[in-house]
Every structure is written in structure tokens, then in C-alpha cells.
Simulated scan of single mutants.
Amino acid sequence: MTRSFSDLPVEAPLHTWIIAQRRAQNRGTLSRPKIVLLGSLPGWETSSRQFELDEQWLTRLSQFKDYIAATNHLPSYKNYETEHEHTLGVWLHVQHQKRAEKTLHPWRLEALNSTHPGWHSRT
């Protein structure tokens, strides 16, 4: 007979905790420090697609920060001067929408707030 971790009394709470952490990560509610720490554990598998999306998002955040430093204003998606500004403006608009819908990952909200505290509208 094969036993799973959840069948063992000592491992059951750990198994439950791990499942909760994976669900939180999939929902985007797992804190960045936990993501990093859990990611360093052998056998902790992360979605390569989510990793790719997070890396793309961080790249866009860096471009956003550089844009503000260079122009001293937020990028616009409607009245833009360059395609780069338009791209960043659309990205920022999507972040506004996700924030309003409460679907923006908490770590992303924190990153945006620390990059430029006045980035969002008052919704």
C-alpha cells in the first residue's frame, strides 16, 4: 500500500500548508519574499509561464521608472508623443484597471507604489 504525505499524521499539517502556499502563489497573493524563499527549496516548482510574465512585468516597470526619470511625467496612452510612451501608457492603464478590479498582484502594487507613489488614480 502506497501512502501519501496527507496520510501521515506528522506530515499532514505541512502538506496542508504547502498546498495553501501553492494556491496563494497561483492566485498572486503570495508575498515576494515567500516566493523567493519557497523557490529556493528543492522540489518547489514554479510555473515557467508565470516566471516569464513576472520578468516581462519587471522589465516594463523598469522602463516606466526610466521614462519618468527622463521626462518627469507619467506616460500617456491617449495623447502620446512616441510609441514607447504609448506602450508604457497602455501598460500603466492596465495596471490602473487591475488595481481598481483588485486583481493586481500585491507585490506588483507594492513595486509600483515604491517606484512612483502617485502612479494611480484615486479609486
Score class of each variant (00 low, 15 high):
A20Y: 01
G43L: 14
G118A: 15
R32Q: 14
S31W: 01
D54T: 14
N79H: 06
Q97T: 08
W44H: 00
K98M: 05
G89F: 04
L112M: 15
T29M: 04
Q25F: 05
A70I: 02
H86D: 03
I18H: 00
E45W: 11
N113T: 15
E52D: 07
T46L: 08
P13H: 03
I35G: 07
A69K: 07
G43T: 06
L38C: 07
Q25R: 01
Y77A: 09
Y77F: 11
Q56M: 10
A12G: 02
E52R: 11
I18P: 03
P9N: 05
Q63R: 09
T103I: 12
T82Q: 02
R22N: 01
A20W: 00
Q56W: 06
Y67G: 07
T71C: 09
L14R: 01
Y67D: 14
P9H: 09
A12F: 01
W91R: 05
S31C: 01
L74D: 04
H120G: 12
T16E: 09
K34L: 13
T46V: 15
H120R: 08
G43C: 11
K98E: 08
W107H: 11
T123E: 15
F5L: 12
G39D: 10
P42A: 12
W57M: 06
I19K: 08
K78R: 07
R99D: 02
V90G: 02
I35F: 05
E101G: 07
L30F: 11
F51L: 09
Q95M: 15
V36R: 06
G39Q: 04
H86T: 02
G43Y: 13
Q21F: 06
K78W: 03
G28N: 03
Q50P: 03
R49V: 08
H93F: 01
R32L: 12
A20H: 02
E11G: 01
A111T: 10
E45K: 03
N79S: 01
R3C: 14
R49T: 10
L53H: 10
W57V: 08
K78H: 06
K34C: 04
H105A: 13
R3K: 14
S121L: 15
P13T: 00
Q95F: 01
L104Y: 12
H120D: 12
